[in-house]
Nucleic acid binder design. Structure first.
Lengths: 340, 340
DNA sequence: GTTAGCACTCGAAACACTCGACTGCTAACT
DNA sequence: AGTTAGCAGTCGAGTGTTTCGAGTGCTAAC
């Protein structure tokens, strides 16, 4: 059933006001603030039908109305008018990303910072581990007689976190030879392909260094099965919202926010390009409080996911603001990445 | 003034009980639980002199006694009887560290995990950045035509987080030559020496690659001026202690715990070997809540600080347990490090 | 369809009261 | 001297009562 224009307007007012004040919205306040042309009694009857339709909820008989999850969804999809960011805010974004850095992680860290600062919510940013990503260069560098650093370069990243043991007796020529073999074997292949590779059946050339190759493949597998870097910013912003005046709620949210796995699950989303995703009231995610929303944006280039960033907070979230900020951050990211 | 033996005993009982129950301790409960030989009236008069001496505080007239900061200090230094860890707990420590890893960071992460798990407090572990540390090997590895990875090996760590831009035109021979020069210049020098080095006056040999050398020195300086890796574990353990039933307190503690700088300041401590340090009631640290204690252990080998680990929590902390856990973790670390 | 008017509901805040867990004091006892 | 039983006094936590006002829903008139 389609709502009348006036009902939509009124619903929008309720959601707007409630987001702003965190207090149940009364018919009177609507006529005072927004709909000065009609009386509160009229609004009252509209409110009561909106309640019947499931968009509003009354905490108790003599209280104003509070939006239901349905209302928030409708609000995000149709009702809200996006707020343009102010000049100062745009400048702030620009400035933070200006410190040109090639490191994807550094950029995500900045994104998390900016988002949390501008929205006043806890923000999360994470690098994706896309198994489609293609290895451009792979090499080991001997850093100590018995250890080598495995460095993998893809289009977007430089991975350099695996230290592999090598025999002390190995000569530098052997290392050089191994690097040739590694290139032959792995260059221009995606992580996915490599993971499904059968390392058992190495050709004769490789056999000599079998254990080393196994170590490399294991490092790759470990990397792809892991879940990227996760950056949290503004954890304590949480406390400034009245829904978290109760420790129990803080506890619940913290439980999620401090668990990397939970976060990754929550932030996961599909889609290409800049892709906004709003999960209101946890939308059936397990172990996540009902009164909790997550808004994420996923950023991908050439079909490869670079990362995801977003905010996590109460259902009564300033979606207007959050969406605007995420969109603007997305634009900046696009312009940065396009320069690569 | 020296306290009588009985006063000490009674004070110990009060602190013990209060730590356990978080409820002001009454004279009656002491006679029931510990001092069955005397009457509550006797204990009462002792309590009241202990209060006069500043060791105990009464929240209100008709309440039991609560230890003062002074009492906690005395308790930690003289009164408490360290609790031996159970077999299960020792096994747990052993098991966690068993996954032999050469990476200092990985070890600190394990330490934080173990400590938080066993003490039920929020734990912190951080790697130190000791400017006395000596560079054993320093090299750049070309990972892309225009980028090189700077890898520095010290006795304890492999640093590999700086990517340095190089001219695309640079030949591999030049890179080789640069590595020779880097070795000549920086090997077996400490970070401190390098920071005070005057890069302006490079000898003729180096002049050709001046900008590159500057980049390297900057990377080193940036590293040493930064403040190590900080690992937090068990942030939500906080909520299980009754002092954090009030959001305001949680807020305060979180503000510290989420700020790397504040943490580093708090955890800082001097001393050699395994060095335990107990800060009760913040001991005058700025911006840190009165009712907050920090117990840290610093671990150094050959005069070089490896890192610091500890717990942060309410003044009413189970010091017995915490100290035992930190000591045991220290022992394990010692045995690991001694194998290097 | 709108509106004024009115009865009704219910939570929040203020207040009074009880209960019991403490203490401190005193006078007697060892 | 130190210890103890007994008792009056204090104060917070918990409970019940009352008031107040911000809301609503309903109805009859416009």
């Amino acid at each position: 059933m389609e709502l009348s224009d006036r009902k939509k307007k009124i619903l929008q007012f309720v959601v707007d006001d409630y987001i702003q004040t965190a207090v149940p919205v009364s018919s009177k306040s609507i006529t005072e603030r927004h709909l000065t042309t009609v009386s509160s009694a009229t609004v009252r009857s509209e409110l009561s039908t909106l309640e019947e339709l499931g968009y509003l909820v009354q905490p108790h008989t003599s209280a104003g109305r509070v939006p239901s999850l349905e209302a928030y969804k409708l609000y995000v999809n149709e009702l809200m008018v996006k707020k343009k960011l102010t000049k100062a805010e745009l400048d702030y974004i620009e400035k933070t990303f200006l410190s040109r850095s090639k490191d994807v992680e550094e950029i995500l860290r900045s994104a998390a910072k900016v988002i949390s600062e501008l929205t006043q919510y806890t923000s999360v940013a994470m690098t994706a581990r896309d198994s489609e990503e293609v290895i451009r260069s792979i090499k080991i560098f001997r850093v100590r007689p018995t250890d080598a650093l495995l460095v993998i370069v893809t289009d977007n990243k430089i991975l350099k976190d695996s230290v592999i043991s090598i025999p002390e007796s190995m000569t530098d020529e052997s290392v050089f030879r191994i690097n040739e073999l590694l290139s032959d074997m792995f260059s221009d292949k995606s992580f996915k392909e490599i993971c499904t590779m059968d390392v058992g059946s190495l050709s004769k050339d490789y056999l000599e260094y079998k254990s080393l190759f196994l170590a490399v493949v294991n490092a790759l597998r470990e990397y792809i099965s892991g879940s990227g870097e996760v950056v949290l910013e503004g954890e304590n912003k949480m406390f400034d919202h009245p829904e978290y005046a109760d420790v129990e709620n803080v506890k619940n949210l913290m439980r999620i926010v401090t668990s990397k796995d939970k976060l990754v699950e929550l932030m996961s989303a599909d889609g290409k390009g800049i892709n906004l995703n709003v999960k209101i009231g946890s939308d059936g995610y397990d172990g996540i409080p009902e009164d909790c929303s997550v808004v994420t944006a996923t950023y991908s280039v050439n079909g490869v996911q670079i990362g995801t960033y977003g905010v996590i907070g109460p259902t009564r979230m300033d979606y207007k603001k959050v969406v605007s900020v995420l969109e603007n951050v997305g634009k900046i990211l696009e312009s940065i990445v396009s320069k690569w």
